[in-house]
Nucleic acid binder design. Sequence first.
DNA 1: CGCAAGATTGACCGCCCTCAATTGATGTGG
DNA 2: CCACATCAATTGAGGGCGGTCAATCTTGCG
Lengths: 206, 206
Amino acid sequence: MDECITADANRPVAASAVLGGTAITSRIAFERGATVFVAGMLGRPWRVVEGLVRLDREGLNGPEFGGLARVGDVIGAETLMFDRYTYTAVALLPLTLEPWCHGTAIEREHGLLLALARSERRMADVLALRGGRAAERIRRLFGYIAEAIGYRDAQTPCIPMLRLRDIADITGLQVETVSRTISQLSDHGEISPLARRQVQLNYSPD
Amino acid sequence: MDECITADANRPVAASAVLGGTAITSRIAFERGATVFVAGMLGRPWRVVEGLVRLDREGLNGPEFGGLARVGDVIGAETLMFDRYTYTAVALLPLTLEPWCHGTAIEREHGLLLALARSERRMADVLALRGGRAAERIRRLFGYIAEAIGYRDAQTPCIPMLRLRDIADITGLQVETVSRTISQLSDHGEISPLARRQVQLNYSPD
DNA sequence: CGCAAGATTGACCGCCCTCAATTGATGTGG
DNA sequence: CCACATCAATTGAGGGCGGTCAATCTTGCG
C-alpha cells in the first residue's frame, strides 16, 4: 500500500487542493467544504472511509451537481483509465479517504465488482432525492445522511447540517424553498435543530 | 463465449421474461416494452449493444425508476457478486444485449474499469434529466436518446418516441405535464412529430 | 366491433420559483 | 476590539409552472 502514498507526492495539480487534507498513515482527512480534487487534475481513486462527498461535473454554466458518494463508495475510479479526474469532489461532511488500490489480481477484481455493484445503487438513491415533494426530498436526504454516518439504531438519528446551497443542488430545489421546508419540518416536529449545526431526526430513515 | 449461452439456459425465473428475446449468435434482441429481467431472479451481466434500458427497483409503493442504461453500458453486474439481479430492466427502445463476460483476467479487469468509469457518467447524465424546467428536461432526454441510438451528425436527429409514462418517470414529471410540454415544443418548432412514433429534433443534442 | 391502455385537453389551485430585502455568521485588517 | 466585507440563511410578496382530478379522444389488438 505504501506505493500509493509515495506516488501521491508527485501529483502536479494536487498540491493546493489536497493541502487541506491531513495525512494519517495512508488515510487523508478533509474538513467540511474542502475540495478533494478537481476535474482534469491527475490523481488516483479513493474509497470513502467516513463522511459524504459531493461530485460535480462541468456544465454549460459552471459546475453542476453530478452525484453523491457515501462510506464504502469509490470516487475517481476513472483515473485508472484516463489518469485524470472527470469530476470535482467536495467534502460535504468531515471526510476520511483511503487510497483505493488492491494487491493481487483477484483482490482487484473483487474490489472492482463491489464498486460497480454499489454504483448502481448510488444512482437510484441519488435519483430518489430528486423526486416527490420538497419535504419528501429533504426527509430522504436526511435519512440518506443518517445512514451515511452510520447512526446508532438505539437512539434517534442525529446528523450534521449541510449548507442549504448543497441541499438545494442535491434535491433540485431552490435555497429559499429548502429554508422554508426545513422550517416546516421543524414546526411539525419531524426534525429538531440542535446546537453546533446538528439536526435530530424524529423519524426512522427508511 | 459459448459458455455464456449454455449457462443461460438454466436460469429458473428467466424463462418467461426472456421469452420475448430472440437469440442470434450470442446476442439477444428485445422489442420495446419487453422485460429483460426482474429484480430477484438469477442471471448474469449484459452489455447494451443497441437500444435503451430502464432500470427500476422495488420501492415502498411499487417499482420506482432507478436509472437508464445506454449503448455500451453494463447492466446486472451485481449478479457477479450476489447471483441475483437487484433491479428490474425494461427495454425502452428495440434492444440488443450481449453477455458480458471476458476471457482473461486482464480483459476482465479492463472491462470492469471501463464499466465503472461509465457508471459515474451515467449517474450525472440521468440526474440532469431531473433538473430544470419541464421543457428542459424533455429536451435533454430527447438529446440523450439521440446520442443513445447514435444519430447521424449530417442529418437532423430523428428518435423513436417513448411512452409518456416512461418519460414522466424518468424526468420526474406527471404524464399530463409531459403531454402538454411536448405539444409546446412541437408548436415552437423545436421538435417535429413524424409517422410511426418518431420525433425529429430541430436542435442539436448537446 | 368492443375492450383496454395510452394520450390529450380543460379547469383549478397549490407548491415552488423568482426577486428583493433583511438578518445572522464568519473572517480579516486596521 | 471594533469596523467592515463576505457569505449564508431567513422572510416576505407575487406570480407562474406543474400537480391533480376528470372527461374525452386515440390507438392497438383480440
